[in-house]
């Protein structure tokens, strides 16, 4: 998590203020973590107990009465979960790696090189970012099918690169880096590639890491596209597998349109 290590220590504080601030930060952290902690603790309960002690509020609303690892055991026993995890890992890593490479190059050009159509290209990036994925789902599927990629890693990885978000984010950062650096490099005989490689990338390490991380997490959480573009269980990713756990007949979680 240690993505930035900035030295911008803004304000030296008086004792009381510092304590109040620390308390506030901690309280916020609890708010952010509590729902997830509750979920995690619920996962340690036997199935019958999960929703048993919700009302009225007591210690057992939060803490499992009979802690057990049954849920995890079921998960691992009933499903080739390792395979799903591996698929998710492969897809998310590949997309993250390809995306950061492709996006940073494009972002560099968009931020630093003047060429005809640059604004139009940026507009295109924004457009792709805006259009809801649901609108593209069917045509995207048709393209991937035409390429013969259904049920392959290619289907899960290639169409996801680049992410318009990454290009946009990196462009904003590259624009913020002082121009003098480029000029100095050019005087030293660097060309665009050299500037990109030796100056932009090293200076943007934190943001490149952020982009990689965000793409990874986005892909790790992606659901609709993997569901639609793969049929074979060998290609299944974790989110699709997990989605079917809470559903189906006899499950109280979702109301099917039919429940027969």
């Amino acid at each position: 998590m240690n993505l930035t290590s900035s030295g911008t220590n803004i304000r030296p504080r008086s004792g009381l203020l510092a304590h109040v601030a620390a308390g506030g930060k901690l309280a916020l952290a609890i708010i952010f973590v509590f729902p997830l902690a509750w979920m995690f603790l619920s996962s340690l309960r036997p199935v019958a107990e999960i929703f048993q002690y919700i009302f009225p509020f007591s210690l057992w609303t939060v803490v499992p009465l009979h802690a057990t690892l049954d849920s995890y055991r079921h998960l691992l026993r009933d499903e080739p979960f390792g395979r799903y995890l591996a698929n998710s890992l492969i897809v998310a890593s590949c997309v993250a790696a390809f995306d950061v490479a492709v996006s940073s190059m494009a972002a560099y050009a968009l931020a630093r090189i003047r060429f005809a159509g640059r604004e139009a290209l940026f507009f295109l990036v924004l457009t792709v970012m805006i259009i809801p994925f649901e609108a593209l789902l069917v045509p995207l599927y048709l393209i991937v099918r035409w390429l013969g990629w259904v049920d392959s890693y290619a289907a899960l990885i290639v169409p996801m690169v680049p992410r318009a978000f990454s290009i946009f984010l990196l462009r904003q950062f590259f624009r913020g880096l002082p121009r003098e650096l480029d000029d100095a490099a050019r005087i030293d005989g660097c060309r665009d590639w050299g500037i990109y490689w030796h100056i932009m990338l090293p200076l943007s390490r934190p943001v490149l890491l952020s982009v990689t991380l965000l793409t990874f997490q986005e892909m790790w959480g992606s659901f609709t596209w993997p569901l639609v573009s793969t049929n074979n269980a060998n290609m299944r990713v974790v989110q699709v597998a997990v989605a079917s756990f809470g559903q189906g007949d006899g499950s109280p979680r979702r109301s099917p349109s039919c429940c027969s």
Partner: peptide, 8 residues
Amino acid sequence: VQAFPYGE
């Protein structure tokens, strides 16, 4: 034989 989540 392939199984998919009900909702989708």
